[in-house]
Design a protein around this nucleic acid. Structure first.
Lengths: 125, 125
DNA sequence: ACTTGACTTGGAGCTTACTGTAGGTATTAT
DNA sequence: ATAATACCTACAGTAAGCTCCAAGTCAAGT
């Protein structure tokens, strides 16, 4: 699969795909003899994982470390476990912040709704 | 309340507090005759709101627009309603992405746990 | 063989959101 | 009055994560 096809399939720009590979956020992609990227199933799985992690806000740095550990073999399994656990904690904290903010937004939105119906805005900020 | 006290109370650097005011993410803060910031209850409420929104990842730009609308009076209530509703949608999407990523992390973490107990790693990425 | 278009690298540039610095002013304690 | 400390503005610098560009290479069609 060419970089163009991967770019379209996952809605990630070609530049970003090359960037991910360059910084080590995904392992080196399979190439043709001419040096052109030819994404295999495994390469695609890494791209998909990277996209998922990034979309949640997980830092590029964490993915780079994870890829590095994975390439170092089984001995790094405890380290990988720890890394993923830490990232999981971080995401859970982030979700809690979003939930708190959503509650506030809902409250404000509700007040604006009432204001638009009745013409009265209570407790403005 | 001085900027130092506000900084400590909300755990936001003084630089950031000044930055928030400068870019209009919070309205202009009350000053002493000497020109020094003296945060009043209302100023603090804005700081707190800004902190909450930013911690959830809501863009600074959105808060700037919201503050601007608020200062333009009641006629902007529908616009404020729309702005907050859009930001709410964005946060809900972000939360969904976090949830999807958390599921994947949990799956991987579970597999690493089993690997550490049994020495066998199934279905590696 | 030649053109066209997609691909390559290396490196510069951009955006967002701060963060730090320099040079000056205000306030507080002695 | 003076020294120490906290504050001020304006502006430059930084970090993360892309994004764009130039100059060149590869591959497919004619």
């Amino acid at each position: 699969m060419t970089i163009k096809e991967v770019s379209e399939k996952y809605d990630i720009s070609q530049d970003t795909l090359r960037y991910y590979e360059r910084v080590g956020m995904i392992p080196l992609v399979t190439r043709t003899t001419g040096g052109i990227r030819d994404y295999q199933k495994e390469d695609l799985a890494w791209v998909e994982l990277a996209k998922c992690m990034r979309s949640a806000g997980l830092p590029v740095e964490a993915m780079i470390e994870y890829v590095k550990l994975t390439q170092e073999g089984y001995s790094t399994i405890p380290a990988r476990f720890q890394l993923l656990t830490e990232q999981k904690e971080a995401l859970m904290k982030q979700r809690a912040k979003i939930d708190a903010t959503l509650e506030r937004l809902n409250y404000k939105i509700g007040r604006y709704e009432i204001a638009m119906e009745t013409g009265v805005l209570t407790w403005d900020e």
